[in-house]
Structure formats: C-alpha cells, structure tokens
Amino acid sequence: MSAWKASGSLYINACMNHEGDKMKENVTPALSIKNITKIYGKKRAADAVSFDIYPGEIFGFLGPNGAGKTTVIKSILGFIFPDEGEVMINGYDVKKDYEKAMASVGGIVENPEMYQNLSARTNIEMYARLHDGVTKEMIDNVINEVGLSARAKEPIRKYSLGMKQRIGLAQAMVHRPKLLILDEPTNGLDPSGIHQLRDILKKYAHEEGAAVMVSSHILTEMQLLCDRVGIIDNGKLITVCSLEELNKQMDSTSGYSIKVSDAEKAQKILSDNKIPVSKGEEGYVEAEVEEDEIASAVRMLVTAGVDIFEVRKIQSTLEDVFLQVTGGGIDIA
C-alpha cells in the first residue's frame, strides 16, 4: 500500500475530469445533478455536488459514513428537498416535471423496507400500480429474475435480509426504469446472491441500456461491478473516475513486494542503488520498480548474500484509492 501512496496523487489527478467519458458528450444523461447542496444547521451534508450518469453504465457512489452519499441519493429521489441545486432525470427537471422524471426511476434507499404483513407479490403489485404500463407478466418476470418465484406469496416478515434485498430489487426494477439507484444493495446477501446481483445489474445496464447508480462500502464489489465511481467526503464530491482509467493507473504505478532473509540489509542495498524502497510486512521490502527493473534488483540482493523467498507484484485496489482520497475514513464491511 505504501508503495502507491508515494505517488497516490496521480489517481486523483487522473480522475479529476468530472465530465467522465468524452464520448458521451452527445448523450442525454439518465441523471444529471448540479450543485446539490443540503444544509443541516451548520453542517453542509451535501456541498455543491454535481455529476452525470449515462445510460448503459454502472456508477459507483463511494464515501465514508456521514460523507453525504445518502443525502445526495435522497435528494435525487425526492425524500429531501435540497437547499440549492438541480436534479434532471432523463432530461426532466425534478422540480418542474416531478412525475415524468420519477416515472423512469427505481431505487432502494438504505434498506428495502416493505409492508411486512403483505406478501412480496402484493408489495410489488402495489408499487407497480403507481406506474403506467406494468403488466402482470412483468411482475412475474422480475420476481423470477431475482429467484423468489417460489416464495412470492409469503409475507415479507418471513423473509431474511437477503431475500428482502432481492425483492426490493425486484420492486425497484419492475417498471424497467431507465435509472436505477441502489443504496448498499449487497447488504445481507450471501456470496452467491452478490454474484447474482452483479450479473443482474450488469445485464440491466449493459444489455438493456439502463443507468445504474450503486452506493456501497464493499469496495471490492464496486471494483467488480462499476464502470465509473464517484467519491464523496464531507459533503463534497472529490472525484469521478472511470474504473478502466483507474485500473490503468493502478497497474502502472504498482511496485514489487520481496520476501527476504534480512529486510534491513535488503532495504539498504536497494536504497544504495537508488531504487525507491520501503519496509513492508515483516520480512518484506517493497521496491518501487517497473517490470523490466525487478530482475536486476533481485540480482543485486542475491549477489549481496540476501536470500529471496518470494517476489510478488503489488496490486493497488479501489480501497487503496478510496483510503487515500478520503484520508482513511473508510467504512469497510
């Protein structure tokens, strides 16, 4: 981790282009928020947050606890009224054309809370009744899609958290919204459930062309799922960056971790040869070298009598980026 920290600012520099992909310039964003600000007392829970999400992409929304993620999501979905700013959904201004804008949105905020005494199917039917054009087949299909057809007639109170997440997702998707906003959707899901969710969302975004916004604190999941991420801290959006771009940066800036018989001696040898090096875990040194330099570095150590037990490339993760950007205030599941 320390290896990339030395050059961590590169990630931010590489991602500061909030506009995201230039190739989407001519596409109407599924979601466009501009300068969303929400103030509670003296605290600015959201401070001039702006970003766009485009059809066909999965957007990860990251931030530590209290960073303002939920405030922004609730502002988008009409739960709270922002003090300033504008929310456009599929080209409709939420303030002026609320119903048209919200007709193409589905979402889960925090946990999928439904009517406990009613069955999953009734819950979805009730929600579907509020949307135009939702057929019985669509309800059947979406319940089937989340794998709960067999238990759809049971009341929600009998459901586990994971099942509630699934049925919540089904409800959010029943009207096939163009914008799907999910707050911590993997909560309570087992590994296979998470895998299934990932498949559903990817298919939904990449094949059906919907925009998906996911907020989660499970960063590895976000890395596997998202096309772009936005990181928010203290109410301010710090960066928006595509995963592709980020991966390139993470690959290019990585170093090597070497397990040696004498770490102190190894550190001194490499340092004397002007190779950036730092102490890693016990028995390891971390050398900041490119792939074509590692062989000579190893040779130096062997020649100097240091035994080598393992040479491993350091892979930076989204978590590293997140920690660096937010100053370590991470909430890891």
Binding site: E99, M102, N123
Partner: peptide, 14 residues
Amino acid sequence: ATGSIKSLIIAPVR
C-alpha cells in the same frame, strides 16, 4: 417508522 414510506416517495406521484 418502518421505512415503508420510501416506496411511496420513490413512486412517480406528487
């Protein structure tokens, strides 16, 4: 209290 209001607020109705 139960949070079920969310499914109402999120629906396209004023």
